[in-house]
């Protein structure tokens, strides 16, 4: 059946958890592309046949014409599915820039296609140049502030870090009271967690 593989591709998106990325389905993707090109071959040969029969392409409404229309529509549908797949994945990839930061962990990177990896890097650079032009980091402060200070527990040996005008020694498992803006970058990198008593 025409268009079945493409719909599988889209269904994969729909069934995955929102905001979560599944591994890029290279096989299926290539198959759909191949299908598109087969449609084109069929479409062209039908159009040629109409011409060879000495009929006008615009007005002929015979079996060949409707065959060609079916191929054309299948091709368009496949294209829409492919684009929807890429587009929605790109949306998730962009959201990762906000949630995870400029460097993606290995396990996420494995799920991206080569072009997607490039897309992430380029998009991230574009965002950074916007923020540096504004001289304002927009990736911190993702939740409305309650208290300017929060309690955090350090998950990894970070060492001595200069925070504002004082340095703190961030050893594993130690608990600190830090400025929320300072702590956020560590939390998003997974080096700290909010410490709730």
């Amino acid at each position: 059946m025409y268009g079945r593989r493409a719909s599988q591709l889209v269904r994969e998106l729909a069934s995955s958890e929102s905001g979560q990325l599944t591994a890029f389905n290279n096989d299926l993707f290539d198959q759909v592309i191949k299908e598109c090109n087969e449609h084109q071959v069929q479409l062209q040969s039908l159009l040629r046949k109409i011409q060879d029969d000495g009929l006008d392409i615009q007005t002929t409404k015979n079996a060949d014409h409707f065959g060609a229309v079916a191929h054309h529509l299948s091709l368009i549908r496949n294209k829409r599915c492919l684009m929807a797949y890429m587009h929605n994945r790109a949306e998730i990839i962009r959201s990762l820039r906000w949630k995870v930061g400029p460097v993606l962990p290995q396990e996420i990177q494995q799920k991206l296609s080569y072009s997607e990896e490039e897309y992430f890097k380029n998009h991230s650079t574009a965002l950074e140049s916007y923020m540096s032009e504004l001289d304002l980091d927009l990736t911190v402060d993702m939740v409305p502030p309650k208290d300017p200070y929060i309690q955090v527990r350090v998950l990894d040996d970070i060492g001595d870090v200069l925070l504002g005008d004082q340095s703190a020694s961030l050893m594993r498992n130690s608990v600190h009271s830090l400025k929320r803006t300072d702590a956020e970058q560590f939390i998003s990198q997974g080096l700290m967690e909010e410490f709730l008593e």
Partner: peptide, 19 residues
């Protein structure tokens, strides 16, 4: 630009002419 490039190289350039 980035989005176009991304879609171009992963989908559009591989589709038949006219699409």
């Amino acid at each position: 630009d980035i989005m176009e490039k991304h879609l171009q190289q992963s989908v559009l350039a591989r589709l038949p002419y006219g699409y």
